[in-house]
């Protein structure tokens, strides 16, 4: 199997504090990995570091994408290589309308604007990106933008958090379409796109399934296992005494 993303001994700082303290993680082509971990353990920081945001600074280690060292690359270089991200708390982009950005990323004739109603975003095309969007609206907007971008590797930071029960289906199926090349139904769907997904509740896993799960604690990958097993474990015992850690050796 080809390695899509390979992270080796990654250390990174945010706000002059070391947040990532030696992360090792490999995700293969077509694979979906899920990342669990307590609040503040460094999950979002890891995703930001992979995307290349300057809020974090790599002090040691490396990030390889499709075999290429991207540790020093700019954000847009990484995006052009095929990495896309849905942020947990994206910034307000004052003055830039959602529709204009969609046209800029996918080209005016891509038809992406016509897709907006499928994301219930048609009324948001003329609004400044994220400004005054509700929690659920931000998620739908991020997914629409990712759909315009068509990444090969997707970083999803809590895609379902703050989404009401009615909209969770929409979010779930749109994430699914992103990963399964459009119209995947049932087992016949062909998955080309790889992803790393952060979730606390595991709800999103009902829609996409995941190949492998990891638990992050204190800036390190503490353990890994089958997604369903780890989730069950965390639900029963919390992160304090992870049974998986005792049974699974990394």
């Amino acid at each position: 199997m080809t390695e899509m993303l390979k992270i080796v001994n990654l250390h990174a700082e945010a706000g002059e504090r070391e947040i990532l303290r030696g992360v090792d993680l490999t995700i293969n082509e077509g694979e979906t990995a899920v990342l669990f971990g307590p609040n503040g353990s460094g999950k979002s920081t890891l995703l930001s570091t992979i995307m290349g945001y300057s809020t974090t600074k790599v002090t040691e280690g490396e990030i390889l994408f499709k075999g290429e060292d991207i540790t020093e690359m700019t954000v847009d270089q990484r995006a052009k290589l095929g990495i896309g991200m849905m942020m947990q708390r994206p910034p307000n982009i004052y003055g830039v309308r959602l529709g204009d950005l969609l046209n800029a990323t996918s080209g005016k004739n891509s038809g992406i604007i016509d897709d907006a109603p499928k994301f219930k975003m048609e009324r948001f095309l003329d609004r400044e990106i994220n400004v005054g969007f509700s929690g659920g609206e931000i998620k739908r907007s991020e997914l629409l933008q990712l759909t315009a971008q068509k990444p090969e590797f997707i970083l999803l930071d809590e895609p379902e958090s703050g989404v009401d029960l009615e909209n969770i289906d929409l979010i779930g199926s749109k994430v699914r379409e992103l990963l399964y090349d459009g119209h995947g139904c049932g087992g016949s769907a062909q998955r080309h796109v790889s992803s790393l997904v952060i979730t606390h509740t595991g709800q999103i896993l009902d829609y996409i399934g995941a190949d492998r799960a990891y638990v992050m604690k204190n800036g390190r990958i503490q353990c890994s296992g089958r997604p369903a097993d780890l989730l069950k474990d965390i639900k029963e015992h919390g992160y304090g005494e992870c049974a998986a850690c005792q049974t699974i050796k990394l």
Binding site: Y53, T74, V75, D76, A79, Y94, D100, L101, A104, Q149
Partner: peptide, 19 residues
């Protein structure tokens, strides 16, 4: 804000002029 737009594939100049 610049990096957010860059993460959608715009280069820095494009991101800045859009903002």
């Amino acid at each position: 804000q610049i990096e957010y737009l860059m993460s959608r594939g715009l280069d820095e100049d494009q991101a800045v002029s859009m903002i």
